[in-house]
Amino acid sequence: MERLNVNLGKVKLDNPIIPASGTFGFGYEFTQFYDINILGSISIKGTTKDARFGNELPRIAECESGMINAVGLQNPGIDKVVNVELVKLKQVYNKQVISNISGFSLDEYVYCTKIMDKNDMVSILEINISCPNVKHGGMSFGTSSESAYEITKAVKAVTSKPVFIKLSPNVTDIVSIAKACEDAGADGISMINTLLGSRFDLKTGKPIIANAMGGFSGSAILPVALRMVYQVAQSVNIPVIGIGGISCASDVIEMMSAGASAVQIGAENLRNPYVCKEIIDDLPKLMDELNIKNLKDIIGRSFK
């Protein structure tokens, strides 16, 4: 359906619905629920140079209208992602994916970018400088404009594919960080990653999450994400993928009004594995009700 089409720079999507990295595995797990070819794209599980187990259990704590996770970038390492996981995905999925890349050093981001640059299944590189669940690296690269600039510059130098930088909300001024990424040549911004949070066991008083802290996501964070997308989308001239707390078609309309060119659905996939399909099915009807002809028309209408 053409009225759902959106563009992320030169990348054209059938619709703006993209499952967020870390909530959709490597995609093929969801074929038990629906045909994943209906999706705009898929942001696959965050990939690092080497295989990682991640953090000890428990990694999950429930919250009001959301959850905390501290998985810690569990993934089989980039070689297996390319040679096993993407090969498995290709058997059931005929579109391109967004490759989410994490690292613990600038060299590691560059290493993974070079490998994904050669992969035909990858349309966009999403550089995750905002993972809250790993010590050293991860979010620490995304909390200052200088390091965000440096990482962006380094990965841009080794790829011809579009580079989107995934930003953390756990900062004092997300606009200046987004601008630094744009200045360094970023082709887009993905935002927001999770908010740092904790829960404590009532009986023992100790943290529920083994890692004590984790990333808070779910519908509770939608207003935070909307506000930050609204701020950033007005300040940069590159597309923004809006992420954070989206759970239904009306949230998508809101996020695109705030300035997002496409959206990612995260935690809601975990509680309702059908949510992306439901949103894609619901959007045309909601657009009719709201007199929206094409989704493209509403991007950033809040400030335009």
Partner: peptide, 11 residues
Amino acid sequence: GCGFGACMGCS
């Protein structure tokens, strides 16, 4: 988290 293998919450 999910119960069906997507989130890696119970590895």
